[in-house]
Design a protein around this nucleic acid. Sequence first.
DNA 1: TTGCTCCTCACGTCACGTGAGGTGGC
DNA 2: TTGCTCCTCACGTCACGTGAGGTGGC
Lengths: 271, 271
Amino acid sequence: MFTIGAFARLGLVSVRMLRHYDAVGLLQPARVDAATGYRFYEADQLATLNRVIALKDLGFTLEQVGTILDEKVSVEELHGMLRLRRTELAARIAADSAALTQVEARLRTIEREGRMHPDEIVTKQVAAVRVAELTGVAQSYGPQHIGPVVQPLYQQLMCALAEAGVTPVGHAIAYYEDTPDGIGVHAAVPVDVEPGGDGPFAIVDLPAIEAATAIHRGPMDDVLGTLDATARWIEENGYRTTGLHREVYLDTTGADQSDWVTEIQEPIVRA
Amino acid sequence: MFTIGAFARLGLVSVRMLRHYDAVGLLQPARVDAATGYRFYEADQLATLNRVIALKDLGFTLEQVGTILDEKVSVEELHGMLRLRRTELAARIAADSAALTQVEARLRTIEREGRMHPDEIVTKQVAAVRVAELTGVAQSYGPQHIGPVVQPLYQQLMCALAEAGVTPVGHAIAYYEDTPDGIGVHAAVPVDVEPGGDGPFAIVDLPAIEAATAIHRGPMDDVLGTLDATARWIEENGYRTTGLHREVYLDTTGADQSDWVTEIQEPIVRA
DNA sequence: TTGCTCCTCACGTCACGTGAGGTGGC
DNA sequence: TTGCTCCTCACGTCACGTGAGGTGGC
């Protein structure tokens, strides 16, 4: 017979934990003194305590530990619980590993440059979206070539949508592709219509992507700086890009672009 | 200007989270309607929201995120916070990886044998302990050879300790080593004395070890089964042993050993 | 008598999720 | 009028840690 303190030392747990396991019915003392309420444990209850600890260390809740210990689960159910746990553990390890990579990238930045780097870049799961779009071609990727192409496209697109009685359901999205003739420029806007109508605009489903996103403030002519910073972040954090970026125009109310706010979405995968 | 719902959709967070960040002062709406209490956000607040999410994803608490965002920490302090986070993340990844290995070992057992294996084996950090001990030699590792050596050793040891006025401060520990002449048998018991006295017993410091531990119930002649199970567990869970096991005698009140309870400690490292 | 161990409440944790109950504009 | 979105409380979560306040045996 052990007192709760001696038993706790043996099992390398706290006295409070043993009291808690008693309270929730997981592990009750072999004997409780009626007069004083003192708990007494048998040596072989250490085996039960070890089972509790082992299952708890796998990440099961105390309630799950209880049902497993009481043999209230069949082998099939236990199998299912273990597979679920495997999935959850793998997901958490992946998330923690990504976080660790980022922490190390920030440490390197600080040690190298003596300052912290801007941390407004974040990964997102961008959902698939149906858009109406017009396309054009630009000579190069430089803002000075893109702007004169994309802006007229949007004016035509809005006009055509209005004529077709189609209402945008989200923010304008520009995206790009390499073509033999130059940069394919897509001026798109989310819509909620069935595809197949042959208007002047095309209905396209943009696929869901994982993206590194940054908020760009100011004129689109300055977007290269934001794209650079995003590209550096992608490299330092163990990703690589899988295509050209998208631009989501969040705020285009300012007349001269100086108050514009754009979200840059750079498609990525783990390198 | 975005309503809270629109802003939440943009940032891929819940409305509740935005209200919470408002409540704790992390990210307050650009404007709150005095009459209705409606919150309104500016597009460029998405950059702040992204910073919050990025820092939160690194595992910082919201309070830490707040102090970092408010630039209340120096670069040195941030450096320290990041190093601490790195350590914590690495530790959690290691723990989760060990748990994942164990989950997979259990899944294999179930799929192979159609039943779950006993899960009372658990790893422990066994602390260093000072013992008084007597040693002998046994012909082999079989219980039939060990028992007749260890039992008289303990009788002599207890007798010698009593004569020397030394009181045991814990459970008897037997441990073993390979020697050219056979198995070195150590009958030890924790004591709280200074080393160096030259009595009939030796004062030895047993080192701290990481151990896989199992509770053995019943006579020591049956210990091989428990040792086998422990050895299998060690192999299946990605460890290897680094020496011979210790036996901690938790309950030796029964006269005929059938009620004895012993903790087996098998020293391990990650394979 | 002083420590030590034991006891029973009961609050606090952390970042929200989830109703409950109600309001305002299309 | 019916949905939809917004609002403010306020409870619940999970496994204990941490006092507060008190008792019993050496």
